[in-house]
Design a protein around this nucleic acid. Structure first.
Lengths: 236, 236
DNA sequence: CGGGACGTTGACGGTCGTCAAAATTAGTGG
DNA sequence: CCACTAATTTTGACGACCGTCAACGTCCCG
């Protein structure tokens, strides 16, 4: 069922600057490209990996949009992040050689398969790669610290405003508008990520609209007043 | 002001199994001990490191108890974790060569200083160490995923029960009783970690006591019914 | 065109935050 | 060692925020 494309190049990839370490020697780049064995396409709703699966690869999002979510013993689940092009998924699997969350495509997507054994082997020789791997993991830790702050101390409006600003920031880096975006996830998924119910997300969107801060048409969001959003996140 | 003890050994450290990779060759162990340049004692209330400080070391808790906390622009702060003997602090600093949280000792403590440059250099040669570093970072990511689940989807009683069970579990690994513990942190710090106010922590403790699940005398907690606590965390 | 997933809105209630006061403990300096 | 002050904890009363339940509307996709 899995559609894998054997040969690809990082050097020609638009996401290269986000995904790969900078400042590589040409021959180092070649070796990394060998490592990136293949691509895989993942249809909307399908998983790049699931909880309990044996860990052997990291995955770089090439195109499309993912969510990662953990599930507790009693069936509650929590979206722990949304991943877009150039971001790495699967770091959770390293510690016990087993994935502890699901990575689900929110739209048809393509991922690059990065066999972790090879990453480890190659990063013994290419210090730039070693450093990059450490940074990616550290960045994820810092990101999660931020989410904990959000979940632990912010109110609904603050959470949603922070969420919108974070999304646009990441989209802007990728060359998209910083004032307009299309949500790839449902209200329920946003709610799960932010520790709120979908009705609260819907109501808070409506409030932002009536305050003239954003426009919303289905999943299309236009930000009218970025400053106002920032003020909501950080009330003086 | 900083009291540093120059020479120490990992091989003689009680926390070795938790802190260091297993299965090292004797000569590899020697090289790692060289790397662990020194210890430092940190008094209650002092910081191992603070937000904004330049990152250059990881720190292993040798004795004592720490909290790590992040602060938002508008001054809110959030305890992101509690660290005990054998646990590693400072991973957040790798990505931008700068710490993004404070690590504060909750009691007089000793930490081992692990210069990260040397960790990186040595893990190019000692694969066991490389693997260990990756696992430590991955473990932290998985831990934070769990906290996000807690903050995003659990109610007050569930959060506190999960917190107590997590603490006793970690203490048990270190040879302490699994039914008795002394809290090193205030109600406010517990509350910050769990996304609740200190009054709620106090009330929830009182409820657990009146339900006969625990006994509490100041910061001394005795767990009377572990099963009941587990049932609170995972309601059927 | 029809059915199902998704989104919006309203009414109501529960959980937890806020404010306040008192009790207990810890820390400090004489 | 003790007195004194600050910090922490407990408990109560009250209210706000957000969850729950329900009904309706909208948008997709087959």
């Amino acid at each position: 069922m899995r559609h894998e494309v054997p040969t690809i190049t990082c050097s020609g990839c638009k996401m290269r600057d986000l995904c790969m370490p900078a400042g590589l020697e040409p021959n180092e780049m070649d070796r990394i490209e060998e490592m990136v064995a293949s691509r895989r396409s993942v249809k909307r709703g399908e998983a790049a990996f699931r909880t309990g699966e044996r860990f052997s690869n990291l995955y770089a999002v090439r195109t499309g949009f993912f969510k990662t979510c953990v599930t507790s013993e009693d069936g509650r689940d929590q979206v722990t992040g949304f991943q877009m092009a150039g971001e790495i998924m699967g770091l959770d699997g390293i510690v016990n050689s087993q994935h502890t969350c699901d990575a689900i495509a929110l739209e048809d997507a393509e991922i690059c398969i990065l066999p972790f054994e090879q990453i480890e082997k190659l990063s013994l020789e290419v210090r730039t790669l070693q450093r990059h791997v450490h940074q990616i993991m550290s960045r994820e830790i810092v990101r999660e610290n931020g989410v904990m702050l959000l979940l632990g101390s912010m109110r609904a409006e603050e959470r949603l405003a922070a969420f919108l600003l974070n999304l646009t920031e990441r989209l802007q880096v990728r060359g998209f508008s910083s004032s307009e975006l299309i949500l790839r996830m449902t209200r329920e998924e946003i709610g799960s990520y932010l520790g709120l119910k979908l009705e609260t997300i819907s109501r808070t969107f409506s409030k932002f609209v009536s305050d003239g801060v954003i426009e919303v048409h289905q999943r299309h969001v236009r930000i009218l007043d970025t400053r106002a959003l920032q003020a909501i996140v950080h009330p003086t």
